[in-house]
Nucleic acid binder design. Structure first.
Lengths: 191, 191
DNA sequence: AAATTCATGTAATAAGTTACATGATTCC
DNA sequence: GGAATCATGTAACTTATTACATGAATTT
């Protein structure tokens, strides 16, 4: 699992509640590791049991108490052990590639409809990425240049992958529109 | 879910057993939708309950009976409904990007070690992709040009994404080696 | 002699999603 | 008046993984 390590990493900046973690994850890590609220709360209580975190419960009037989680030395050890250990990149599941795989049985017009839809989504994604640097500059106050560099790298990666996808989709749409069913060659990709 | 639809698609070529499906998936769809054996068997029995498939059990001497699954008209309807409907691309979970996100807290040498490791894996992947066309020409006997075009497109996509990742990793390794922590600009990606 | 192929399945566990539940306060 | 914010949690369900189990026949 990686959500626990994402949480450890964030709590290593400063102690936080589950609610605050959720907001922070949505702005940053969610781009490559999304997490829903219920999952965060469940994971936090497991991590507390494992003694990676301690909790301080701060009562409030007319609201549930804030449960502020702090990383323990044990948690910090776990975090750095994990950070330094190479991970085999997980297999990605791409459902729309399953559609493409069987597209031979579909009409051209329907395939193009699917591809254009995907292209639109990727273009939107690319657009959304351009707004991230601003958001983060506002929300993440830590001024360490090095930290920020690596945060922005993850955005840069998303941008690079998205651009590559857009170019691929444009190429394929052109091919299908021209009824050009020659097999793509591997060489053609190395531009 | 998409494994069911992958199975429907394959059984729409010809009836098969779970064992044969597993082998075929490993050679083709597993690149973007991996499936372990137990998951395939479980899914098949659910699909039979849903009447997307029928089974014919063929006894064998000294071996478990072959259970040959055939797609039903209901299953075929489900397949084509699904194939034509745009799917919101699933969020991908990339654990190593979580590592990069927190890499600001690591030594350069350890970061470079991680990045080189990833680069090696992607280069191997790229290499493995070049062998797929041969494999498939042997195992998939269906000679429809159109079918093959779309099968190969999914490989082409993998190649394109992998090349893009390799280039990104090379760029980042260079930057970290030179202690060049200037923020990447979005514009630089549009080569 | 050992590994692989054929061929099925079950059980336990993990990780994540969706939906539900509560309820005051503050912003538009 | 309605939506968003703050703040916690539980329950049911889905999907997938890991590990176990059996056992003959064939290939290396």
């Amino acid at each position: 699992m990686s959500l626990e390590h994402a949480i450890l990493g964030l709590l290593n900046y400063e102690p936080m509640t589950g609610y605050e973690l959720k907001k922070l994850i949505d702005l940053s890590i969610s781009h490559f590791w999304p997490a829903v609220q219920s999952q965060i709360y469940k994971t936090l209580s497991r991590m507390e049991t494992d003694e990676w975190l301690t909790v301080e419960t701060i009562p409030q009037e007319s609201r549930p108490p804030r449960k502020v989680y702090t990383i323990t030395p044990k948690g910090r050890t776990e975090l750095f052990d994990w950070l330094e250990k190479p991970i085999p990149p997980a297999e990605t599941r791409v459902a729309w590639l399953v559609q493409i795989f069987f597209a031979g049985q579909m009409e051209d017009s329907k395939i193009i409809y699917l591809l254009r839809h995907l292209l639109g989504i990727q273009q939107q994604r690319l657009n959304a990425f351009t707004n991230i640097p601003k958001e983060n500059r506002e929300t993440m106050q830590n001024d360490a240049v090095r930290d920020r560099f690596f945060w922005m790298l993850t955005v840069d990666y998303g941008v690079a992958q998205t651009i590559s996808q857009i170019q691929w989709l444009e190429k394929v749409i052109r091919a299908v529109e021209n009824h050009d069913y020659r097999l793509p060659t591997l060489e053609a990709n190395a531009n």
